[in-house]
């Protein structure tokens, strides 16, 4: 290879060039800044240790109740709450999906005209910005205590979640398939049915199953602010200091969430 008797030497060291911050000085400065900030941030957290000592005993009673759960004493309340929660979860998920599919399609940039896109994106933004508990408080104020407020809250939250993820999935489809269907002279509805739906369906079903178990967990949380269901029962037993019943309720919630998680996992892997 070497013509003039000069053996060329090749570098033996290679480093990956910095991708984000090019200057070495800036990189060091940013690290130092981050560490200093973290130090001060942690040191502002005040822990009142005497308060912890008092609370410890109460906390341990809670744990003890959890470890010796009492399913029987309040079984009637628990079962009513559970049925209410499950009903709320199913109905709100179904209604939420039915509403979020058109909104999700409308919020996909590659399918919808600009004005429709903007309206649908705003609906999604509003639904996502409002936390379930806040929405639940609003609906309880509007419709009174009970499962109906919970149903509305969960359906509303489902729209933001599902429509956003569906829209993003539609924007990620293989455009070649859509182009081919468009080239046959298909109408917009036929395009959605033939080119979009087959591509996003498995994910839509997976997300719906996932939302179903989120809604069940959320139904326990929003019950605390009066939106009915197992959360209401949990709240009552906590305020009566019946930690053993509360422990039983928590165990049931965990069991149901695990079952939901497991079955949705199986279903999703079958759908691919």
């Amino acid at each position: 290879m070497s013509d003039a008797g000069v053996t060329q030497t090749w570098p033996t060291r290679w480093r990956r060039p910095p991708q984000m911050v090019k200057s070495r000085a800036w990189r060091i400065a940013l690290w130092v800044l981050a560490i200093v900030y973290l130090y001060f941030a942690v040191s502002t957290v005040e822990v009142n240790w005497t308060r912890v000592a008092i609370g410890w005993e109460r906390g341990m009673r809670f744990v003890a109740g959890f470890l010796s759960p009492d399913f029987t004493t309040r079984w009637r309340d628990i079962s009513t709450g559970l049925i209410e929660s499950l009903t709320m979860t199913f109905t709100s998920t179904v209604v939420g999906i039915l509403i979020s599919v058109p909104i999700g399609v409308g919020a996909a940039r590659n399918l919808s005209p600009r004005p429709v896109y903007l309206v649908c994106r705003s609906i999604i933004a509003v639904s996502r910005a409002l936390q379930e508990v806040i929405v639940a408080i609003f609906f309880v104020a509007l419709f009174g205590f009970g499962a109906f407020a919970g149903f509305l809250t969960l359906a509303f939250a489902t729209i933001g979640f599902l429509a956003k993820l569906l829209a993003e999935d539609i924007e990620d489809i293989d455009e070649a398939q859509a182009e081919a269907i468009r080239a046959t002279g298909a109408s917009w509805l036929q395009l959605v049915n033939y080119a979009i739906q087959p591509q996003v369906m498995p994910r839509l079903i997976g997300l719906s199953m996932y939302r179903l178990d989120i809604n069940f967990r959320e139904s326990a949380v929003i019950g605390i602010v009066g939106a009915g269901g197992i959360g209401g029962t949990l709240n009552t037993s906590l305020s009566r200091y019946e930690y053993d019943s509360a422990g039983a309720i928590l165990l049931i919630i965990i069991a149901i969430v695990m079952v939901a998680e497991y079955t949705s996992g199986i279903l999703r892997s079958r759908l691919q």
């Binding site: 398939q177 081919a180 468009r182 080239a183 046959t184 002279g185 033939y194 087959p198 369906m201």
Partner: peptide
Amino acid sequence: VRRRIGMIFQEFALVERL
């Protein structure tokens, strides 16, 4: 007019899951 014009694509562009 489009329905009168058939098109064949490079990467086939079949709808894979149909």
